[in-house]
């Protein structure tokens, strides 16, 4: 089994003065941030704070309007198999669950025999064997999310970006996804994720990056953040107050 940590690490990810605007509206402004290999990084913030945008920029799906986003060996770009992303709403192909995984593995250039083996390994690892032949798009929301996570896992990325992976799931589905997150961590994959579930954030976070209206408000160790956040917006966010 190939370990995600194999080969030289692409971490840290360094953002310098990152800005992103659409039609004159500044959506992200002057974000300076370094994401290192240690622990899980949770990006928190109110709706519209720019969390999904930040993940897309880091994954290379969007180009920053200002500043730079670099891994240890160069600028980020989409399609680099060393970092993967699972979207807020999973996007699955009109094929069976297994074929979805096989397709992703084909895209990273794995030989056919290895693809089949890795797909079986992945399906078995997450108890998705019974769903393997089912068309991915008739699976339930929770099953789709697990399949999307499994697909990302099969790629053995060094870094995984997760955008609210449990926002539409019930407690059991949430637990299943959190177990999958743990499986990634076990394989040495760095997790960078967003969530609106504060209990989940407490369970999973090692460090917290807090965004407020497109700006980085603070970046703190998890224990400290939930105990005594440094910034005013984070304090009111935790208290459940409206952030203005």
């Amino acid at each position: 089994m190939v370990s995600a940590a194999e080969g030289s690490s692409i971490l840290p990810l360094t953002l310098r003065g990152v800005g992103y605007s659409v039609a004159g509206r500044v959506l992200l402004d002057a974000v300076d941030l370094e994401i290192g290999p240690e622990g899980r990084t949770l990006i928190l913030g109110a709706n519209g704070a720019g969390k999904s945008l930040l993940l897309r920029l880091c994954h290379g799906l969007l180009q920053p309007g200002a500043g730079s986003i670099r891994w240890s060996d160069g600028p980020t770009r989409a399609g680099d198999p060393r970092h993967a992303m699972v979207f807020q709403r999973p996007i699955l192909l009109r094929r069976s669950a297994r074929a979805n995984i096989l397709h992703a593995l084909a895209m990273i250039g794995l030989p056919a025999a290895e693809r089949r083996q890795r797909a079986e390994e992945t399906l078995a690892r997450f108890g998705l064997g019974a769903l393997a032949e089912r068309p991915a798009r008739v699976l339930s929301g929770g099953e789709q999310q697990r399949l999307a996570m499994a697909r990302a896992w099969s790629l053995k990325p060094q870094v995984l970006f997760l955008d609210e992976p449990t926002s539409a799931l019930d407690p059991a589905g949430t637990r299943a996804v959190e177990e999958m997150i743990a499986a990634f961590a076990e394989g040495g994959t760095k997790i960078v994720m967003t969530t609106h579930d504060l209990a989940q954030a407490r369970r999973l976070a090692d460090e917290v990056v807090f965004l407020h209206q497109g700006r980085l408000a603070e970046r703190t160790g998890a224990a400290e953040f939930f105990d005594m956040p440094a910034s005013a917006p984070a304090r009111s966010f935790l208290k459940g107050e409206l952030p203005w």
């Binding site: 989409a78 979207f87 996007i91 192909l93 009109r94 397709h103 992703a104």
Partner: peptide
């Protein structure tokens, strides 16, 4: 429009995406 982000994320863009899209 529906697949773009996922396919680009998988490195399946440009001419490489054509077989995937036609099949789907």
């Amino acid at each position: 429009e529906e697949y773009e982000e996922q396919l680009r994320s998988l490195g399946c863009s440009g001419a490489r995406a054509i077989p995937t899209l036609l099949w789907d």
